[in-house]
């Protein structure tokens, strides 16, 4: 069964205090490829590797069903810096 965007969103919102969340279906609808951007205070003091492991663990079953999964994880302060850089 294809992975639904709602499934990912619910799982993430249930597990982390979310300041900002973007989930993009990059598969043209077949549910095989998603990209997630999550900003959360839960990431304070964690390395990028540790942050990604949190998401990987949470979405383990869903990721196993996809072809591709990409993620960006930020603390609120890191996200501000990221936005400032991007503009």
């Amino acid at each position: 069964m294809p992975v639904q965007i709602q499934t990912l969103e619910q799982a993430i919102r249930a597990a982390f205090p979310v300041s900002h969340l973007e989930i993009e279906d990059q598969s043209s609808g077949c549910g095989e490829s998603y990209s997630v951007l999550l900003v959360s205070v839960a990431f304070e003091g964690k390395t990028t590797l540790a942050k990604h492991r949190l998401i990987n663990e949470l979405l383990k079953n869903e990721i196993a069903q996809m072809h591709a999964f990409s993620q960006k994880t930020f603390t609120p302060a890191q996200y501000e810096a990221y936005l400032a850089k991007a503009t």
Binding site: T48, L49, H52, R53, N56, K60, I63, A64, A68, F69, S70, Q71, K72
Partner: peptide, 25 residues
């Protein structure tokens, strides 16, 4: 690696990360 996706990079036997992590690093 307890990491669900490929590619995976190791440096001196230590897991560094996949594509997203390497891009940001």
């Amino acid at each position: 690696s307890e990491w669900p996706t490929i590619p995976q990079l190791y440096v001196n036997g230590e897991f560094v990360g996949g594509c997203d992590i390497l891009m940001s690093m």
